[in-house]
């Protein structure tokens, strides 16, 4: 069954005809070729495919494309503005949170959602928020540092720089 959807991806309005069974991940990767969003398992275990849907970090492999109709999607390609990296992206680089980089887009997206809430978190809160993401390279150590750094100086209500 073919369905037409209208949605916004990284600030750009898109209109697509998709199969009703297609996941948002398939649409992002295979139709839009936004390959920064990765597939590590396809069943919601690893978090590599996380994107922002109306500001909420969601596994795009578990989200049907038809549900994205009318929504605003942000992928890792949409975080930097005018060539300037977001605070989260900068922190991932400076804290050494990147190794093979396959899990990185997912972590960066979830961290961006956290940052947009505009307040800092304790270590355990950071861990709980990121618990849906696997990383096999870093032992999570520098990812936690990067996320904490990107939340530094955040106070309630300031909003993030990812949207």
């Amino acid at each position: 069954m073919i369905k037409k959807i209208n949605f916004t991806v990284n600030g750009k309005k898109r209109e697509l005809e998709i199969n009703a069974g297609e996941t948002l991940l398939e649409i992002i990767r295979k139709r839009l070729h936004l390959t920064g969003t990765k597939e590590g398992c396809g069943v919601g275990e690893c978090g590599a495919c996380t994107v922002l849907i109306d500001g909420t970090a969601i596994n795009s492999c578990l989200y049907l494309g038809v549900w994205a109709d009318g929504r605003e999607i942000v992928t890792v390609e949409g975080l930097a503005k005018d060539g300037e990296l977001s605070k989260v992206q900068k922190a991932f680089i400076s804290e050494g949170a990147v190794q093979c980089g396959f899990c990185t887009p997912g972590f960066v997206i979830t961290a961006s959602a956290l940052q947009s809430r505009g307040h800092s978190l304790t270590d355990i809160e950071v861990k709980e928020e990121l618990a849906g993401h696997f990383c096999r390279c870093t032992g999570y150590q520098n990812i936690i540092k990067a996320v904490k750094k990107s939340l530094e100086n955040e106070t309630a209500g300031t909003g993030g720089d990812h949207t």
Binding site: L79, L85, Q89, F92, I93, V98, G101, F102, P105
Partner: peptide, 18 residues
Amino acid sequence: PRLDAMAKVTGKAKYTGD
């Protein structure tokens, strides 16, 4: 910092499946 960190945090780094 890693040479490829920028490409990896922006989603530009292309892996085989990409």
